[in-house]
């Protein structure tokens, strides 16, 4: 793995009429990284991805892939890109093999050996000469991966890849993407609105809303590095317990549950527990509150929401 940026977005903007759909997006994706693209429906995820692969024209700004501008040197840029935009749609009246042959002809230097190799990789050997219209969705998804990696791209772009897949299919795809990014150093860009899915799949996520980049978060950072931790106490007498907690430390109280912000030390939790016990307040449970991506996502997007 190296740290060079494979994909670079600079002030990417899309306007349709007077409406701005994507507004000045800038970020970089490095090789060997799985990069998530997160946002509520209508945030501009699909538009951005379609601009990256040249399906939608760019109003302003620039997308470069391996240094080639998608706007000015489309053909050179696309040599490095493999993509599945939404569910992969194939020519149902042709066999899986013919479909791969079709896309192989559109790219420089994809030999017959490579087609066979990819077919084996996605485990479609048994059905590859059957017509695609007889394939299940999971098989189509695998064929979709096959056509995307046929020409050994350095970037893989997937728009809502888990749409319509069953849990097993999702898991398979996830393992597959991980393998590609780790072993072949491919940069993977995935868009989704499924938070839990993204959390499992990605190294970093960009959160966008209303076409603007709100934040880029990394999952590689160890959670213990933060200075504060949130702990939830389940107590018997919530009102009396509240008086024992310093004013600014209490985050919220929900019935018998008090969420308290404490220094990230184990003895801080023990000390508070001891105080409760001393005062005769029964403590039924103590647990650390970990922030899921969903919490983080809501935290970032809340307040900016336009209803």
């Amino acid at each position: 793995m190296n740290d060079t940026a494979v994909v670079r977005l600079e002030g990417l903007t899309k306007k349709i009429g007077s409406k701005t759909i994507v507004d000045g997006l800038s970020f970089e994706v490095k090789s060997g990284e799985v990069f998530g693209f997160l946002g509520p429906n209508g945030a501009g995820k699909t538009t951005t991805i379609r601009m990256m692969v040249g399906l939608i024209s760019i109003t302003d700004g620039e997308v470069t892939i391996q240094g080639c501008s998608v706007k000015r040197h489309f053909e050179q840029a696309m040599v490095h890109v493999g993509a599945i935009v939404e569910n992969p749609e194939f020519y149902g009246f042709m066999s899986g093999y013919q479909n791969l042959q079709h896309f192989a002809r559109m790219m420089p230097s994809v030999e017959k050996d490579r087609i066979d190799e990819v077919v084996k990789l996605v485990r479609l050997e048994a059905r590859i000469h059957d017509k695609v219209k007889t394939y299940s969705l999971g098989m189509r998804q695998r064929l979709g991966v096959a056509q995307a990696i046929l020409h050994r791209p350095s970037v893989l772009v997937l728009d809502e890849p888990t749409n319509g897949l069953d849990p097993e299919g999702i898991r398979e795809l996830r393992d597959y993407l991980r393998q590609l990014s780790r072993e072949e150093g491919i940069a993977v860009i995935v868009s989704s609105h499924l938070l839990s899915e993204m959390e499992l799949m990605c190294d970093r996520v960009a959160i966008i809303q209303n076409g603007r980049l709100l934040d880029v978060r990394s999952f590689k950072e160890a959670p213990a590095e933060t200075e504060w931790t949130e702990v939830c106490f389940e107590v018997g007498e919530a009102d009396r317990a509240r008086e024992l907690i310093e004013e600014d430390a209490l985050i919220r109280a929900e019935g018998a549950e008090l969420v308290v912000r404490l220094h990230n030390r184990r003895d801080a939790i023990a000390a508070l527990n001891a105080r409760f016990v001393q005062e005769g307040i029964p403590v039924y449970g103590i647990r650390a509150v970990t922030k899921t991506l969903e919490d983080q996502f809501l935290e970032v997007t809340r307040g900016n929401r336009i209803v």
Binding site: M78, V79, V85, E89, F90, M106, M107, Q147
Partner: peptide, 8 residues
């Protein structure tokens, strides 16, 4: 969507 994202 698969046809137009090729180097052509």
């Amino acid at each position: 969507k698969l046809l137009l994202i090729r180097p052509a």
